[in-house]
Amino acid sequence: MTSVEIPASKPEISKPAILAPADRAAPAKGRLSLPAGVRPFQLNWPYIIVIAGYHALALLAFMPGWFSWSGLILAMLLTHLCGLFGINLCYHRLLTHRGLKCPKWLEHSMVVVAMSCLQETPARWVAIHRRHHQFADEQPDPHSPLASFLWAHVGWILVHQPELSRLGIYERYAKDILRDPFYVALERHGWLVWINLIQMPLFFAAGFAVAWLMGQSPGAAAQTGLSILMFGVFVRTVLVWHITWAVNSVTHLWGYRSYETDEDSRNNFVVGMISNGEGWHNNHHADPRSARHGHRWWEMDNTWLTIRFLERIGLATDVVAPSAHIKAQAAKARLVTRGPDGVPVD
């Protein structure tokens, strides 16, 4: 079986130019049409029902009688860890862009964490994201905000897109993923659903057990268990969804541009902070294979720091750092930004 080609941000733009400070907020392209075959809309009812149900239960967790500070802290911690290890490090930088390698036991473990966030199977997530890079902010892009913000954020998930049919995108974009029997099994046996169902009683049982051991009555312990379930599963999943969706929508509309790429990717400070580095999206489109997205000292990239830690302890190898061209352009930009006399210029 031949290896799949991993599309870069655009094959013909191999060395993006650094942008002068005055050009870093260049106006967006014109409005795009939706991807081919979308109209007339065919609603994806299973996805609509699940997404609406998770949001309703996440909101219910904040109602009196269900809310708990321990549950909220748990949700915030798991949002950070599941998003970092599952979506950012595993699905995106490892599987999609091959920016590093990990032992299979660690890779597969992180895949299970990613699937607990209910963001598609590995092969489908990778295939859709590779297609996005190939056609970023062009009509075939599955989720460009130039079609509309709502479309990029969630709308593209709620309707059928013929161009994203599983066989079609797998054949073109995910052959390498499906060489691993583990990923084939995930596709064939519905493990995305099973993982998300299995975690629910586990969270309830953990919350019930801790509360009961701390002396709560069985009724109170059951209520605590339900609170832990709602925060640990539903609130956490919804938060990870919106953080991931914000990378698709917000970072192609608002922010600054450090590199002249042929799409509208932006570096967005807020998304960069809450997404553990995924919001430095212009940097990423300029150098897609790099496992490091934050290029400046203040562009915090916790996912990159985690990768460096895994590399230091021998659990990550072949880590792809920013290319020599990107480093040279970044150094040049710092000199230009400060001016010949060392004084910063606007």
Rank of each mutant, 00 (worst) to 15 (best):
H189N: 12
W212P: 01
W151I: 13
A328C: 11
E311T: 02
R179W: 05
V240R: 07
I228Y: 07
A152D: 10
I13E: 01
I157G: 12
E263D: 15
A36Y: 10
D287T: 00
R236I: 08
P103D: 10
V343R: 15
G86S: 07
R31V: 12
A206H: 01
A136H: 03
V126M: 04
R236N: 04
I307H: 06
T237I: 13
F41H: 09
A246G: 10
A209P: 03
H285E: 00
A222V: 03
Y91W: 06
M200Q: 14
P181L: 07
D176R: 01
V193G: 02
S14I: 13
A174I: 12
W280K: 05
P340N: 12
R236E: 05
A205Q: 07
S217P: 03
R31F: 08
V320D: 01
L118S: 06
S290L: 04
D346P: 08
G232I: 10
G30T: 10
R31I: 13
R166N: 11
R289C: 01
M110L: 15
V154K: 06
P122S: 11
H189A: 06
L213N: 08
D301L: 02
R338V: 14
T121Q: 13
I326M: 13
G272K: 12
R236A: 04
P145Y: 05
W156E: 09
W191K: 10
I51G: 01
K101R: 15
W280A: 03
E107D: 10
S9H: 09
W304Q: 01
L34M: 12
W151K: 12
L186Y: 05
P11V: 00
Q134G: 01
V240G: 03
A22W: 08
A330E: 15
W45E: 03
A185K: 14
L315H: 12
A136G: 03
G294V: 04
M1A: 12
H285D: 00
A221V: 03
L164G: 09
F182V: 09
I157M: 15
M273I: 13
W105K: 10
S265R: 02
R124N: 10
I157P: 13
G155K: 07
A221I: 05
F135R: 00
I198K: 07
A331M: 11
A174S: 15
I177Q: 08
V38N: 02
E171H: 13
D287W: 00
A20M: 15
S109C: 14
F85H: 06
E138T: 06
A330D: 14
T244F: 02
H153F: 14
K332N: 10
G342H: 15
F234V: 08
H132A: 00
A333V: 04
D301Y: 01
F208I: 03
Y170I: 08
Q216G: 05
V38E: 02
F234K: 05
T317R: 11
L106W: 11
W254C: 13
L84M: 13
I169A: 04
E278Y: 01
P181K: 06
T244K: 04
